[in-house]
């Protein structure tokens, strides 16, 4: 658990972060969202002391992080940045092994761990182990970046716009991959982003910041359906609910088959995103759709299902 207590950072006379109080729950992904310059990166970097706070406290599992040596603190926290920052003179395996090596772990155990992690992030170890960072695409490089951050199995992961430099297709794929990884590993993740779709799609919770202060902290549903201020409403935009639907498969919203009533004639695949399912409802002028998996009906979905305060979280 990471707790921020009256955290602040001054640069000269101006506050980059001011009186920030926030608890990042264990095993959840919290998206740190907000407009450019609102202090997201500064907040993130104060957690692993890449930036020293000017006031307040960061507590990791109840312990003030100032009690630890910065290097020791950082080795226990995964760190992923937009620029990836792979070491170009080392191959993929050596890059991933960075923190285990710093910690003096056994080389052979680390080599096995590297393969396991490359598998986890969707890169074939035999193909990629010996490649240099210069031979990777942006998406592959960032997968290695994620594997490297996970190498020493830290309970906490800090990510600063990890998918920000990727083209939309690669970003989509990586977001999906990361969502699956997080579902399995259940790390305590703080992910900085200014991309609302990303925050709604990946965040168990969203902390929306504005001008160095916390504007609202809650689940995506809270922010969309129960915004605490005009800023929150405006920042998320009129189509926030649609954006949220776009990030979820329709299968999350469907009602189970009851066996009695006849199946609606129009069908959609269960992997279709919920916003597209809504568009199909509009286009067909119908009230319900059949949801199929591999041609087999598995449920139905209608307006009311999509209108709920949002899908249940996994």
């Amino acid at each position: 658990m990471i707790e921020l207590h009256h955290l602040e950072k001054r640069f000269g006379d101006s506050f980059a972060v001011q009186d920030l109080n926030l608890t990042f729950p264990d095993g959840e992904l919290t998206a740190l969202l907000g407009p450019s310059g609102c202090g997201k990166t500064t907040t993130l970097r104060m957690i692993n002391r890449l930036i020293e706070p000017s006031g307040g406290q960061v507590r990791l599992n109840g312990q003030d992080t100032r009690a630890l040596k910065p290097e020791a603190l950082r080795r226990g926290i995964g760190y992923v940045i937009q620029q990836v920052g792979l070491f170009p003179h080392l191959n993929v395996a050596q890059n991933v092994a960075t923190v285990p090596d710093l910690l003096g772990r056994d080389r052979r155990a680390t080599a096995a761990r590297v393969d396991e992690l490359l598998d986890l992030v969707g890169l074939d170890p035999d193909t990629f182990r010996h490649k240099r960072p210069g031979e990777l695409s942006g998406g592959q490089a960032q997968r290695v970046g994620v594997a490297r951050a996970l190498a020493a199995d830290p309970p906490v992961l800090l990510m600063d716009e990890p998918f920000g430099a990727l083209d939309p297709l690669a970003r989509d794929r990586l977001q999906d991959a990361f969502r699956d990884i997080q579902r399995r590993l259940r790390k305590t993740v703080v992910m900085v982003t200014h991309d609302i779709d990303e925050a709604l799609r990946l965040g168990d919770r969203v902390a929306l910041m504005n001008a160095g202060r916390l504007e609202q902290f809650g689940t995506p549903d809270d922010l969309i359906h129960r915004p605490v201020s005009d800023f929150v409403r405006q920042f998320l935009g009129e189509d926030a609910a649609l954006r949220q639907l776009a990030g979820q498969p329709v299968s999350r919203f469907m009602a189970a088959l009851d066996g009695a009533s006849p199946l609606p004639p129009v069908a959609v695949e269960d992997t279709l995103n919920a916003r597209s399912a809504l568009a199909v409802l509009l286009r067909e002028g119908t009230d319900r759709l059949t949801v199929t998996r591999g041609g087999q009906a598995v449920g139905t979905v209608g307006w009311a299902d999509l209108r709920t305060s949002g899908p249940e979280r996994p």
Binding site: E71, Y79, L86, V99, R148
Partner: peptide
């Protein structure tokens, strides 16, 4: 980027 990553990893 490489330097920041190096620092961030401890």
């Amino acid at each position: 980027g490489a330097l920041d990553a190096a620092r961030g990893m401890g």
